[in-house]
Design a protein around this nucleic acid. Sequence first.
DNA 1: GTCTATACATCGATAGAC
DNA 2: GTCTATCGATGTATAGAC
Lengths: 204, 204
Amino acid sequence: MEGYTKTEEKIIEAATEIFLEKGKDGARMQEIAERAGINKALLHYYFRNKKNLHSEVFKKEVQNFFDGLFSAMSSEKDFEAVLQNFINSYIDKLAQRPEIIRFIIWEIQQGSGFFADLMEEIFKEHHFLKMPLAEKIEEAISVGRIRSLDPVQLTFSIIGMCVFPFIASPILEKVFRDTQIYSETFLKKRKEEIFNMVWNGISI
Amino acid sequence: MEGYTKTEEKIIEAATEIFLEKGKDGARMQEIAERAGINKALLHYYFRNKKNLHSEVFKKEVQNFFDGLFSAMSSEKDFEAVLQNFINSYIDKLAQRPEIIRFIIWEIQQGSGFFADLMEEIFKEHHFLKMPLAEKIEEAISVGRIRSLDPVQLTFSIIGMCVFPFIASPILEKVFRDTQIYSETFLKKRKEEIFNMVWNGISI
DNA sequence: GTCTATACATCGATAGAC
DNA sequence: GTCTATCGATGTATAGAC
């Protein structure tokens, strides 16, 4: 981590774990302090209050997630490769940090607009106008690579298919006792399934 | 609501609103009492503690959501109709109560297993063995109505596509200023888009 | 059943010594 | 920068009058 002192790093690290696990309201400053090996007073010395600390952690996590994702996208390639790559990257990223979904969903529906602003910022950093994948889809349509459809709708569909297994993993692993969501074989199969479904549905 | 006294009803109603909006940890018993027009003591008289009240509300909401959904499914029809019907019902249900997604996701990832148990119970009530849609897909494959594929994977895909727009609605309406997720036209278009994507991808 | 009053714990945040 | 001690607010929960 750059730009942080040793103590700040320890705090951020501890706060990330606790906020991801318990959420903003469920998290306790006391617990964060303990896990960081310091005391509450020092938390406030560095981050002033809980809201602030949470924002810092949230911003870092979201940026980290999407930076990796979008930087893998920017290179110009054939749309089939772009699609394949997007699905693979998204699933791999989610498998690394599945807790981030709940984190983001909570913040989104809080209605603060904080996440939306953050995303806009990240889009700009990567020189996208709005949603990266939607732009690529538009391109592919205009050059006749795929059939004409609503790029936004397709983007929703692809992301939805990628995200859902991670949202539902605890139930799914219970209902289907032999399904291990985080296993290499499942992830590979999932990637193929999404790609096939989409490509069958949109290719000319 | 059946089986509740007038006061219990008022409490459940108020608690539902507050829990859906602020979550289990963010909700305050004081606020629930005020909205119900009673005092804190009476909350504990009827529901003993916060955890209990939250469970009650959660169970009621989940049952209400899936009961409506599954009872619309049980009748035997051609798979194309079943699929169409499932997508339509799911989207309509979500449009009615979008807050339930966050509610459920939070509970799922809490790892208590409460939601999984609840779902199993609901499946049984409707005489399904595991996941309703997955069973219908298996049938359709075995009679050669659709191509052979993993029913669980397809189920994930369909639900993911239905749910995602509601998860992301606040950002989407910001990024695409002209997109009104809850408008009749958007919902209709979304249903068609999902059905077409799936049907193109699986029909023989 | 419903209220007021209050016990008791714990929270986020701060003051002040070092 | 880091600590101890503590404040004031607020949280859940209960006791006891009506």
